[in-house]
């Protein structure tokens, strides 16, 4: 089996053309990237605002309950409701429901990351900033957000991992992406393609996580790394799943 998967992955003919791995990979990244972008535009400002203002924190809990929604079921429901709204030779009736489902999947970890990141900024630092005469906006931009970055990144990495892994289901309502190999492979008993594509999805998700880890090391202030470990130990009890996803390797340099 391993040999068959390897043969499938290394056969150049499988990489070219509209049905080729390269094109499917690009499609997969496009669905994932678009969903993460939309989710980020919604969740990051919202989470930051909730934590900064202390208002409407029930929204974070509500968003967390979205994690319980099964993506595949939601996809079929969305596709049934929306597909008749589009006419003409277009991918929209399949693209829109897929992006909605993946966006809903990405929002809870991003929101939780931004919210807990900003909320858990050391109150002493916040007070000191105010004492220096900073306005609310300045406190947010210059103190709270930089301090929140590690948790924001952990939310982003968790969301990215989930979205890339789950984007395979888009193929079940007629889109491409790496899930197309699973769909066609199972329908036509081409199990080498199905298994090979699963390997590719896993590799892609890990590679994206690695990349974000590198970006995180570059943008997070080095001064936060040591304090981070100390504060983490203190609030392990109420750690959100997003915070828990922050591995020890990221926390300590």
């Amino acid at each position: 089996m391993i040999n068959q998967i390897w043969t499938w992955l290394t056969d150049g003919a499988n990489w070219s053309g509209d049905d080729g791995i390269t094109h499917r990979l690009v499609q997969h990244l496009w669905y994932s990237g678009l969903s993460l972008l939309i989710a980020g535009v919604i969740a990051l400002p919202l989470g930051t605002w909730i934590a900064h203002s202390g208002r409407a924190s029930w929204l974070v809990t509500a968003a967390n309950s979205l994690r319980a929604v099964p993506s595949l079921g939601l996809l079929f429901a969305a596709s049934m409701l929306l597909s008749s709204k589009f006419t003409g030779d277009t991918d929209l009736p399949y693209l829109v429901p897929s992006i909605i489902v993946l966006t809903i999947l990405a929002i809870p970890p991003l929101l939780a990351g931004a919210y807990s990141g900003v909320r858990e900024v050391d109150p002493a630092a916040r007070d000191a900033a105010r004492g220096m005469g900073m306005t609310g906006g300045e406190v947010l931009r210059q103190v709270e957000l930089p301090n929140a970055l590690p948790l924001i990144f952990s939310g982003l990495r968790s969301a990215t991992l989930q979205v890339i892994a789950t984007a395979t289901i888009a193929a079940y309502i007629g889109l491409g992406g790496l899930g197309a190999f699973l769909r066609d492979g199972i329908a036509l008993n081409e199990y080498d393609a199905a298994a090979g594509a699963s390997v590719l999805v896993a590799v892609l998700a890990l590679a994206a996580d690695l990349l974000l880890g590198v970006v995180q090391r570059l943008v997070v202030s080095p001064g936060l790394r040591t304090t981070r470990t100390r504060t983490r130990r203190n609030r392990r009890a109420d750690a959100t799943p997003a915070a828990a996803a922050l591995g020890p390797t990221n926390a300590r340099s």
């Binding site: 008749s84 003409g88 030779d89 277009t90 991918d91 009736p93 079940y172 769909r183 066609d184």
Partner: peptide, 17 residues
């Protein structure tokens, strides 16, 4: 367009195929 059977009818009806 690879689709499930009910979606095949929808696609033809709405012009996606």
């Amino acid at each position: 367009r690879p689709l499930k059977s009910s979606a095949v009818v929808q696609a033809l009806k709405n012009g996606q195929a």
